[in-house]
Design a protein around this nucleic acid. Sequence first.
DNA 1: TTTCGGTAGATTGTTGAACAATTTGGCAAC
DNA 2: GTTGCCAAATTGTTCAACAATCTACCGAAA
Lengths: 243, 243
Amino acid sequence: MTLDEILPDLRRQAADVRHAETGVWAAAVLRERISAGQLAPGAKLSEEALSEVLGVSRNTLREAFATLAAEHIVTRIPNRGVFVTLPTADGVREIYRARRILEPAALLWGSDLDTGDLHAAVGRAGAARAAGDVAAMASANQDFHAGVVALAQSARLNQQMAHVLAEMRLVFHSMAVDPGFHAPYIDVNARMLELFEAGERAEAAALMVNYLAEAEHQVLTAQRAARGESAQARRNRVGDYLK
Amino acid sequence: MTLDEILPDLRRQAADVRHAETGVWAAAVLRERISAGQLAPGAKLSEEALSEVLGVSRNTLREAFATLAAEHIVTRIPNRGVFVTLPTADGVREIYRARRILEPAALLWGSDLDTGDLHAAVGRAGAARAAGDVAAMASANQDFHAGVVALAQSARLNQQMAHVLAEMRLVFHSMAVDPGFHAPYIDVNARMLELFEAGERAEAAALMVNYLAEAEHQVLTAQRAARGESAQARRNRVGDYLK
DNA sequence: TTTCGGTAGATTGTTGAACAATTTGGCAAC
DNA sequence: GTTGCCAAATTGTTCAACAATCTACCGAAA
């Protein structure tokens, strides 16, 4: 999907902006659009076009860009512009290095007082699989892993995990995802939750480590496969904005 | 130390700014000054005064503020201004919740290929203690713990830890630190490194968990003690900028 | 005296225009 | 097919202005 196609949409959303927080608002709008895949990885975010469409000044838009860049959602190349981050293989490995620390550690040392969100996520994932809804399956899976990190009860780790998952969505958007990709992991998640609640934390953590290693491998493989065939398409898409 | 006192200093530093990156540069200058304690927690960062002194426009300065706010170094209150973050007890607890995940996990699952930085930090800490240099002791201790997280080999976790340690410096700047505060931890660090290199990772991680629990308790106690006696002084200091 | 509004001044939030610096792409010359 | 240079487009940054909001001050009422 190109920038031009969602311009009307964005224009509609740019009706009510109040004093004090326009920059935050603009960042939220862009974050949301990127997360939904409407602004694809590699796309250039033109200052002039976006500021016009969002109805904010270039200065305010730049404040939003600074926020998104800090979240790695967007990449700034000096004097060239701002682009939706296009995940690389190294980027994927970096993501999983972080996840292999955060998630097992949360299982080992986190609080076991409230696992409601985890149960809910497992439930949603199962329902999504039954309904054959791939997007809902992916979303529920992300919720589960965010919930695991939430066991650590640290706002900044939750935020970090949110950023990591946002970048994972970019990874998925930058390649074709096999419809059966997420399905096998649903049972693994359920099993992890079971172990965790039974007090078998070390086992749960070990399962998480295995899960993440396996997932990383699959993602890297899929990404490698996608890279070749979509390189030309991506060039075209980016070309739209550079022109 | 008040803003007025370091204005000349900043003005000197604001000589060479180039195209493309002024905002980043301004953020770096402020980050450095805050880290060094020259801009104390609670101090208001006036847009007009700072932009004038740094020789950047208010717009560019605001871009820097957005970056620092994302790092929690600075707190933005809408329509009131930007302040150097004044750590609260809850803030301290939040920091230690994150550290109790990151640091033990890095010891458990991190790479053991390069412990050079850790040995160096332990060495520096010992030398600093021998020399009675409290600041160097604190700095070396921070280097050690940053080095532990670095074992995870994740750029974003390293960055997260850097932010956490920056906020810890704010905590120390917001209270009087007992000269003997850091000394006992030097041996604990050395012992942790010893265990880690002997392959006793679980033991090293357990020691880390204890260390962090103990440190959190001490910091909270010291903070509580400092809060009452310095409340008036802080009010005065902040008052300088509100005038 | 204390409290309650209300107003004036100061500061932040945001915009739009302007110019400087850099990149890009085309075009000529070799 | 390179190489070098120029023109157009885009980003980087500043400046001045105005809107919105907060703070502090001050007089009126209790």
